[in-house]
Computed example of a mutant assay.
Amino acid sequence: MAEVAHIGPGDRERRPLLRTALGAALRRHRRSQRRTLADVARDARVSMPYLSELERGRKEASSEVLAAVCDALGVELGDVLTEVGRDLVGNRAAVLRLAPGISAPAPGRLAHRPGDALLLAA
């Protein structure tokens, strides 16, 4: 299964999938607490294989499952989503720096294209 997607007609830019970034953030929180998959899965009341699939970005989690996993980890869902948003923005900046022929928007200006979505984080 792909960890990046090609988005839009003719757009060959590789973009990370939300499920991959979200899974990585959940895994970072679990590992920073030195907890096992089994421990967090039990507390979240999800199966250990399912939690593993979430962390590896192989499954899309419902909002209820995300809330349960965040509760089991003792972190706020909004904080995890903000972290994921920052990761995605940081990845976008890295792509702009590394990709030849792609110019970054002027400071303080957002580049908009049809179909772009804007992520706002508090």
Score class of each variant (00 low, 15 high):
M1C: 10
M1F: 10
A2F: 04
E3A: 11
V4L: 03
I7L: 12
P9E: 14
P9Q: 11
R12H: 14
P16W: 11
T20P: 02
T20R: 14
G23L: 09
H29W: 11
R31V: 00
S32E: 15
R35A: 11
D39L: 07
V40F: 05
A41V: 08
R42W: 08
R42H: 13
D43V: 00
D43M: 06
D43Q: 15
D43Y: 00
R45H: 13
R45S: 11
V46E: 09
S52D: 03
L54G: 02
L54R: 00
E55H: 01
E55V: 02
K59A: 13
K59P: 00
K59H: 08
E60Q: 10
E60L: 13
E60V: 14
A61E: 06
S62T: 15
A67Y: 09
A67E: 13
V69E: 09
V69Q: 09
C70T: 06
D71R: 15
L73E: 08
L73F: 01
L73G: 12
G74W: 04
V75K: 11
V75P: 02
V75D: 05
V75F: 01
E76R: 15
L77Y: 08
V80M: 06
L81V: 13
V84G: 11
G85W: 01
D87F: 02
D87Q: 14
L88A: 03
L88I: 13
G90A: 13
N91E: 09
A93R: 13
A94L: 07
R97D: 12
P100T: 03
G101D: 10
I102T: 06
S103Q: 01
P107N: 08
G108I: 01
L110C: 04
A111H: 01
H112G: 00
H112I: 11
P114Q: 02
D116N: 03
A117R: 11
L118H: 14
L119E: 10
L120C: 08
L120Y: 05
L120S: 12
